[in-house]
């Protein structure tokens, strides 16, 4: 149990997917201008990342490994993720329309979110067991949401602040992200 706790903490803070591993930067900068979109994106990522983490783990260990075709991993994973996203979208539209309306356009965007694919690949590279992969995917997703929502909160302020012209928008956003990354960097001492 303690091991899982350590794994979760390290995935959320120490190896934060956005600020330490640099995955999923496009949604990080693209959806952080408003708090609403940031929370929507975070929820969608938590949802898809956990499911993708489990399914790609099963694909890798029960399909690619026995058949000895691990060199097809990249193709297999992206197809699994793309069809999973499509399936989740159809399922939600039909059965939970309120959640679907909340996630909105963020679901299809997740296919090309490298954080999802990255977490799946990390799970395999670190040779996690199924439970470890599940905990790691969930924690990485929580870390993603945490960083994105924090960042959106600050960005809403910088949007109305008086920023020098060439620094406006993405530029000041990146510098802000650097400052948040600096605070997350302090967690490195814990590991």
């Amino acid at each position: 149990m303690g091991d899982y706790f350590v794994l979760a903490i390290s995935c959320i803070f120490v190896n934060n997917i956005l600020l330490a591993q640099f995955l999923g930067q496009c949604p990080f900068l693209g959806t952080s201008k408003k708090m609403e979109t940031a929370t929507g994106m975070s929820m969608a990522v938590v949802f898809v990342m956990v499911m993708a983490g489990m399914i790609t783990w099963i694909t890798n260990n029960y399909l690619l490994k026995p058949l000895d075709i691990e060199f097809l991993r990249t193709v297999a994973f992206i197809l699994v993720i793309a069809s999973l996203v499509q399936f989740v979208e159809m399922f939600l539209k039909k059965s939970i329309p309120t959640l679907y309306a909340g996630l909105g356009i963020f679901l299809p965007l997740i296919t090309t979110n490298c954080a999802v694919m990255g977490v799946c690949l990390i799970n395999i590279n670190e040779e996690y067991s199924f439970m470890q992969a599940l905990v790691a995917s969930l924690s990485y997703a929580i870390g993603f949401g945490l960083a994105l929502i924090l960042f959106a909160g600050i960005r809403e302020r910088t949007n109305i602040a008086r920023v020098p012209k060439p620094l406006q928008d993405t530029s000041i956003g990146l510098v802000t992200a650097g400052m948040i990354a600096l605070s997350f960097f302090a967690f490195k001492g814990m590991a």
Partner: peptide, 17 residues
């Protein structure tokens, strides 16, 4: 380190602007 990457890219972007 990680934070430096963000700050450096942000400043380069500012210079390009």
């Amino acid at each position: 380190e990680a934070p430096g990457a963000f700050v450096c890219l942000g400043l380069l972007l500012c210079m390009m602007n």
